[in-house]
């Protein structure tokens, strides 16, 4: 982990803790806060189905290992689910069998998980929701998320500026979800201000390398002049690059991924691929931050700020090393 990133995280955490301290003081006067002797924290996250969720699982287990070692009276249970119904079932198990008193949940779907989380909260479980907000915010005590709007806005602004408001773009989308919609809307909103930028088409490639390869092959067959491909995900960018390489196309000037995966950041840092110049950060590490913040606050009997957005940033050759974590699988 780079010094800068570590330092900036401490700053952020420090600010967060300062805020929680104030909140805690307020509620202590109201007689609500209590210092728990032991904290049983449940973590419910999606199973590792692609690079990003793989990173989520790795960072969650990393948090468990570090925090349990540091705090003997903390017990963290990590559960991974491969769909919303399974996640809802696991949630019930966590509450009734494991008897957790705090929960960090990365919901599969906002709507489907709102009720199950509400049920947990009614049993006095402290709930931190990560990444996807619930449809009824009263079901959560705290919300920690990456910035999906910036995930779409930053690449759009970067492309518009770099190509002087004139470019042919094709885009890939992930899986139809609110998260994907937010990114897509932010991207197109910027592009609307640039009438000479044409988005030729956008298709779903399911955040999957193979699907991205196929969709890009077909885009390349269909459009003879493409300047930029917005792959919208580093895994998908990988498939895009292979398809371009195979078709031997030279018109494409840039491929923009997303999320700041390890290999992508390394490539940008080394400047080793002429099509890759920048990326936008959206690190799965936020689950680590969320677990750590929640656990440490709960051990002290504190609360977290209601909403905490982890900012996304443009990654270029100059700052790439701040986003490079050698140990993470993603």
């Amino acid at each position: 982990m780079s010094e800068v990133a570590r330092y900036s995280r401490r700053l952020v955490m420090g600010a967060g803790l300062a805020m929680t301290a104030t909140v805690a003081l307020g509620s202590a006067l109201g007689g609500v806060a209590f210092a728990a002797d032991a904290v049983k924290l449940g973590v419910s996250i999606p199973a590792a189905t692609h690079g990003f969720t793989g990173g989520i699982v790795w960072w969650a287990n990393q948090a468990k290992a570090e925090l349990e070692k540091a705090h003997p009276n903390l017990k963290i249970t990590v559960k991974t689910a491969s769909g919303a119904p399974e996640q809802a079932n696991q949630l019930q198990d966590l509450v009734t069998v494991t008897k957790i008193d705090s929960l960090v949940i990365f919901p599969f779907e906002s709507a489907a998980l709102t009720q199950p989380v509400m049920q947990a909260k009614k049993k006095n479980v402290y709930v931190t929701v990560v990444d996807r907000g619930l449809t009824d915010p009263s079901a959560q005590d705290a919300y920690i998320a990456g910035d999906n709007t910036a995930f779409g806005r930053i690449p759009a602004e970067y492309i518009a500026k770099k190509y002087n408001g004139k470019a042919n773009i094709v885009a890939l989308r992930g899986i139809p979800t609110t998260l994907d919609n937010e990114r897509w809307e932010a991207f197109t909103a910027v592009m609307k201000q640039h009438p000479d930028i044409k988005i030729l088409d956008a298709k779903y490639a399911n955040w999957n390398r193979d699907d991205a390869f196929k969709v890009t092959q077909d885009f390349l067959t269909r459009f003879k002049e493409i300047d930029v491909i917005w792959a919208a995900d580093d895994d998908m960018a990988f498939g895009v690059l292979k398809a371009i390489e195979q078709a031997k196309r030279t018109d494409i000037k840039e491929v923009f991924g997303g999320a700041g995966s390890k290999t992508m950041v390394k490539t940008i840092m080394d400047g080793s691929n002429p099509l890759l110049h920048a990326d936008v950060s959206y690190s799965p590490k936020f689950i680590y931050d969320a677990i750590k913040m929640t656990a440490e606050a709960r051990l002290k009997g504190d609360k977290l700020p209601a909403t905490y957005i982890i900012p996304s940033a443009l990654i270029t050759k100059e700052n790439a090393k701040e986003f490079y974590f050698a140990d993470s699988p993603y």
Binding site: H50, R209, D210, F213, D235, F238, G239
Partner: peptide, 12 residues
């Protein structure tokens, strides 16, 4: 050899 990699989404 197509992508030179295997991930949990391979062959889904």
């Amino acid at each position: 050899p197509r992508l030179g990699s295997a991930s949990p989404t391979t062959g889904l």
